[in-house]
Write a protein that binds this DNA or RNA. Sequence first.
DNA 1: GTCTATACCCGGATAGAC
DNA 2: GTCTATCCGGGTATAGAC
Lengths: 204, 204
Amino acid sequence: MSQQQDPSQQDVSIKTKILLAAKKLFSQQGYDGTSVRQICEEAGGNVALVSYHFGGKENVFRAIFEEYFPGKDLGQYEAEFQDPVNGMKVLIRGVLEFFAQDEELSRIIHQELTMQSPRTEIVEGFVMPVWGKMRELLEMGKERGVFHFQSVDIVFFLTIGALTYHHNCRAVQSWMANQETDLNETIEAAMGFILQGLGCQIEK
Amino acid sequence: MSQQQDPSQQDVSIKTKILLAAKKLFSQQGYDGTSVRQICEEAGGNVALVSYHFGGKENVFRAIFEEYFPGKDLGQYEAEFQDPVNGMKVLIRGVLEFFAQDEELSRIIHQELTMQSPRTEIVEGFVMPVWGKMRELLEMGKERGVFHFQSVDIVFFLTIGALTYHHNCRAVQSWMANQETDLNETIEAAMGFILQGLGCQIEK
DNA sequence: GTCTATACCCGGATAGAC
DNA sequence: GTCTATCCGGGTATAGAC
């Protein structure tokens, strides 16, 4: 009951603490680079607890997604998805807001997919609905003549890349001139970049 | 003398074989996921050879870049770099051709940077000259009014993302409708996407 | 539920024989 | 130069006490 608010409070179950610790450490050091000992130490518990509560390291990974991945709620945007441009805007905003809201989880997703790790299948199961919808919108927009490109495959990846990689690379601060960037500014810029990239005339 | 042509021939030094085996395995399984034993087995030699020839696993990694990373030859394009649009085109083509020519090395670069591994510094040392030039071109184009965007930082990352991520994700074949894509088609598409994304009027 | 102690495996590195 | 044998550290997982 008082269990759901602030995870740093003491009244959180050790199981949840382990989940949060794992999420944090996986995002910082990668799955392979993080040991079960480390996770439990960070969570303030004992090594054996991972086996007891989850039955192994990989199940901790799976549990993180089941617990913290949003995106089940794509249905609520069906209206916007009727129009490719609006649909893309909604999706771009949604994705970037999620990236900003849970940087840890988004880093984990990005890492696992680029490493093509043994956990790729798990991650794909959660991510595919979103990317799949984006692909649909690209195809719809091309058919209706509002987007202009040759290959759906190619622009699909260019779009995903622009969307995900830039977020990730912010970590490499030495590459940036100005440290803090405003989220809404980023979203606006990404929308402009991508929609223009798709050959779409935008009225701003 | 006959040492330089086909690395699969028998007359290649074991040192080179180790380097090639490591490049292949790192790209497939990541640095951490690849053991020294595996590398030597793949190279047809013994475990101890890594220590003998390179002095440790990390030095094998460094040696791969020193041996196989191109890109020292940016100087030859100084003429094209006077113009932001031409410069971007040259850079985009160069980067994508490199990605296609040595998929292994480009996968390694991408992996290490997204994992922010302890080897990030090594990789950055080789990659930064290229990305730095791209940033210069973006700034130059903005000043001269041929590109139209607010923040250099943001479009810089969007551009890098589009360029690198799409290539990497081709591995996830389940996401693609058509398996094989032509390199030149990809290059043309990427140039169009990015230059339009930068708000640049292109005449095709 | 949580802890201690331990089993077991696999990684990287090296000494020393050939 | 290359191999065999071995060391040592650290990883996951579990048995059993509390």
